[in-house]
Design a protein around this nucleic acid. Structure first.
Length: 181
DNA sequence: TAGGCCATCTGGTCCT
DNA sequence: AGGACCAGATGGCCTA
């Protein structure tokens, strides 16, 4: 049932998620990512539906959350028009009213998924993976798996640095970075 | 042509 | 009550 709809979607496929992180590390590839629709309007506040814990984590990481209200979509117009019909009981609603409500709900869901995709694009941008027009965009599952492995690697690296830094007998000067070992 | 990936629709549930 | 979130279903597009 494709009642409303038909938004154009450029949808490049993606590579295998297997060994994504390892291959990225081994190649040491990086580059300027040109594609991806990043949020057109941003704000410093996080959306209200995010948990406080997640919000603080995101702000600590300097994450800019996409402005939900600022996102331009076809649904914005419908939200104001259907208030009268949606107040009625669904059983009492006429067929056109029900259809109108359905369109409104569909539009909201579409916008929600678009916001999710924008966030996914933002995640792709910071992943250690070759970006570019000639490179396939990471799939959603590959992006999430790669992000997880990347975080784990960074965590391990940080722990290792702490361990070396606190090691007894090691001079803690800036020259330590240039010592041969 | 099969399989992967994706967008969209839809009904149910949870939350504010 | 309305909106957000979620998961299942469906169909389209692309690639091997």
């Amino acid at each position: 049932m494709d009642s409303d709809a038909s938004l154009v979607s450029s949808r490049p496929s993606s590579p295998e998620p297997d060994d994504l992180f390892l291959s990225a590390r081994n190649k040491g590839s990086s580059g300027g990512f040109s594609g991806g629709t990043v949020s057109s309007s941003t704000q410093s506040d996080s959306p209200p539906e995010l948990s406080a814990e997640l919000r603080s984590a995101m702000s600590a990481a300097g994450v800019v959350v996409v402005d939900k209200l600022g996102f331009k979509s076809s649904s914005s117009s419908s939200s104001s028009s259907s208030s009268s019909s949606s107040k009625k009981d669904k059983k009492q609603m006429t067929e056109p009213e029900l259809q109108q409500l359905r369109l409104k709900i569909n539009s909201r869901e579409r916008k929600r998924m678009h916001d999710l995709n924008i966030a996914m694009d933002g995640l792709r941008e910071v992943m250690p993976y070759a970006h570019g027009p000639s490179v396939r965009k990471l799939s959603k599952i590959a992006t999430l798996l790669l992000a997880r492995n990347y975080i784990l690697m960074l965590t391990n690296s940080l722990e290792e640095m702490k361990r070396l830094w606190l090691k007894p007998g090691v001079r803690r000067t800036r020259h330590i970075y240039f010592q041969k070992y």
